[in-house]
Nucleic acid binder design. Structure first.
Length: 288
DNA sequence: CTTGGGTCCTGTGCGC
DNA sequence: TGCGCACAGGACCCAA
């Protein structure tokens, strides 16, 4: 599910409830998510203060005062919801419906100083958590080798030229590869390629510098606008206070098979194709 | 090394 | 309504 804008939305929602507060008690309801949780998981969280909540690609990073960082990945269906200590729905500021916790897949619950609870729920259990020394976080096996943050200065046209060079793989697959660029998933790759007028079927290594430049700019724009919209809620994405994002209403191609290309002066029709077993949406007329 | 396909898991929505 | 199937925002793992 969640790509960079959704994870960033969750991060921003967790900060006011969690940052600077102590985890009074951690409750672990299963031994594993996608992989086994680390040894003594709950006790390594209990009594620790969350100093800072960061993000790397699609990973949330909760830095604890024990010098360890709680690494969290939401997988496809993961949620991290805050239930406030008082009237639990009063804090919702969005006009959309607020999700009730199912309880069924609440795998990890953090009771927060002051009475709130942060609940990690993940029906499909493709998500993950781990604890790792904060000063060595970049060497954690899930984070090592990840490409640059697309909203940082390290991401630029030259970087794309470098990582695409000589690649025969499709542009679609290349952008989904977290080792080349962090944070993009199926939705935002489709949207960025539309914005850059590039076919997802092109070989990555075929792009010229002008095209890489265009793609760089569009990726930044798409992600920035999506974050401002609170991410996309196609099926079940919720922010930390249960609110829905609304960037899905701004999709130009994703999930819009058969509709007219939204680009002015293009008479094309959005197509859905399958690339490496995943849906790609694009306009074959203007995405060359 | 690169690349493509299968796989993990549960829920939902659709056609019949 | 009920059933079966296709599909879902991720990404690891392995075979070729």
């Amino acid at each position: 599910m969640p790509e960079l804008p959704e994870v960033e939305t969750v991060r921003r929602g967790l900060i006011p409830e969690l940052e600077g507060r102590v985890i009074v008690k951690a409750i672990q309801n299963r031994l594993d998510l996608r992989w086994p949780l680390p040894d003594r998981f709950a006790s390594r969280l209990t009594g620790k203060r969350v100093e800072r909540i960061g993000r790397r690609g699609k990973y949330l990073l909760l830095e604890l005062d024990s010098l360890e960082t709680l690494i969290v990945h939401l997988g496809m269906s993961g949620r991290f919801l805050i239930h406030s200590g008082g009237e639990k729905l009063e804090g919702a500021t969005f006009h959309h419906a607020v999700a009730e916790p199912s309880g069924k897949h609440d795998h990890v619950v953090l009771e927060i100083e002051g009475g709130g609870r942060a609940v990690y729920n993940d029906a499909r259990r493709f998500g993950a958590m781990d604890l790792w020394p904060t000063d060595d976080i970049e060497n954690h096996k899930l984070l090592a080798g990840m490409g640059p943050e697309p909203l940082s200065n390290a991401f630029n046209a030259q970087h794309l030229i470098d990582v695409f060079s000589g690649r025969k793989t499709s542009l679609k697959a290349a952008l989904l590869d977290q080792r080349r660029i962090a944070g993009l998933g199926n939705i935002y790759v489709c949207e960025a390629l539309f914005g850059a007028k590039l076919s997802p079927l092109r070989a990555a290594g075929d792009l010229d510098s002008k095209e890489c430049n265009r793609l760089t700019t569009v990726i930044r724009e798409v992600l920035t606008v999506a974050i401002e919209a609170g991410g996309s809620s196609l099926r079940d994405f919720h922010g930390a206070s249960g609110e829905l994002g609304y960037f899905q209403h701004a999709f130009k191609v994703y999930d819009r098979e058969e509709s007219a290309c939204p680009r002015s002066r293009c008479s094309g029709k959005i197509q859905r194709i399958v690339q490496s077993a995943r849906s790609t949406y694009y306009c074959p007329t203007c995405q060359i």
